Amino acid sequence: MTEYRVLHISDMHLSQVRPHNVRNWDFCVAKIEELQPDFVVVGGDMVLDDPDAADDHAFAHAQISRITVPWRALAGNHDVGDTAPAPYQGQLVSNERRKRFLSLYGADYWARDLGDWRLIGLNDLIFASELEAEREQATWLAARLKEWREKPIALFLHKPLCLDTLSETVITQAAVTPVGRSRLLELIADSDVRLIGSAHTHRHRNFLCDSIAMIWTPTIGQVNQGFRVPRGGDQRTGWIMYTFRGQEVEWELMHFPELQPVDISELVKNYKAMRFVPPALSAALS
């Protein structure tokens, strides 16, 4: 039986000017070349911190483009802006920010078929945004689900769909909002969605919600001890490797001693955001 390996890697936070994560990224590129997975999901937050920093976008895209196996990227909040009501640094997702992402990566939602499975990547930052792009993505998703009816589906988002339960009402930057979640759940209600892979929190968790496996992939390097979500999670650096075989899927959390965590806790405490950190202090962490 043919099997397909899919690597889910995320939260690179890359910048040429503030290069503290570049060393870890160099290792990731070399390891992907060695492992030769069938597909790579690049889970978002390619850009260091500021979705309006054009130089960081260009640098991050050039770095991601070093991957030689097939890959597709998801948009993170640091790439296209964040969701209401309290977007990070006041930068709400917008048409302009999304357009910049599309100019580099071509699409912010996509489908990839591997054997019996359909992998679907979505831009969760536009959930409940009331942008026209939200409606376009929903229409596209409905069509892709209908085509794959009664076959297994894996969804990939940047933010987790929830922190603990699908019925929770908490509004937090750490997960999709309740309104956004309810709209997605309505769309996938009649489909065989078996897992939802996400990132964003810089830590790993896995749990079941109504028979859907929720798998959080960690960061490749940048750790902020001040960024807390309920129930903690594993803050070690690494990624998730999925193996799709027939209608089954297995996953493995992979850690490597070469991926040393880059602790930005004090810098964020002192400077409020990495975009304000003097480049020399960033370089000192690498």
Rank of each mutant, 00 (worst) to 15 (best):
R245H: 09
Q89D: 06
V41E: 01
N123H: 07
P230C: 12
N77W: 00
D11K: 07
P87D: 00
I171T: 04
A280Y: 04
R181V: 09
P37I: 13
R203V: 06
I32D: 05
L163A: 14
M214H: 12
D55Q: 12
G90H: 00
D50F: 10
N224D: 14
H20V: 02
Q173E: 11
P70D: 10
F101M: 11
T172A: 14
L155A: 15
G90I: 03
D38G: 15
P278N: 09
A154D: 03
L35Y: 03
G232V: 08
L92W: 11
R135T: 14
G106D: 01
R203I: 07
R275H: 02
L74C: 09
L119I: 15
D263A: 13
F101R: 02
L208P: 00
Y105A: 12
R23A: 15
W71R: 10
V229H: 04
A86M: 03
T243R: 15
E147V: 04
L119K: 08
V6T: 02
P85H: 10
A189W: 01
R97Q: 08
Y4Q: 05
V42N: 06
Q247E: 12
N77H: 01
I153G: 02
S286R: 04
S265T: 15
Q36C: 13
R118I: 14
P261K: 09
E136H: 11
I188D: 01
R183S: 05
E3H: 08
R98K: 08
W148E: 09
D190S: 15
S129Q: 07
E147G: 00
E266M: 14
V277N: 07
D49W: 06
V249S: 09
L161C: 01
S65C: 13
D26C: 00
K146H: 04
I212L: 15
R275T: 04
L131V: 11
G232F: 04
Q91K: 15
Q63Y: 00
P37C: 12
V223A: 09
P160Q: 07
L114H: 07
E96I: 04
I126F: 05
V179F: 11
G115I: 11
G76E: 00
I215Y: 01
F244T: 05
V249I: 06
H57I: 01
E34Y: 06
E248S: 15
D108Y: 02
E34A: 11
H13N: 12
V41Q: 06
V22S: 04
R181E: 03
F276P: 00
Q137Y: 09
L253A: 07
G121Q: 13
L7C: 06
Q89S: 05
D56F: 03
P218E: 06
V93Q: 02
I9H: 00
Q89C: 08
S103N: 13
D108M: 07
D55M: 12
T177R: 13
F27R: 02
L104C: 01
G44Y: 06
F59P: 00
P51F: 08
H255C: 13
S94N: 04
D49Y: 06
S265Q: 11
A174I: 01
R194K: 14
R98L: 14
R72P: 04
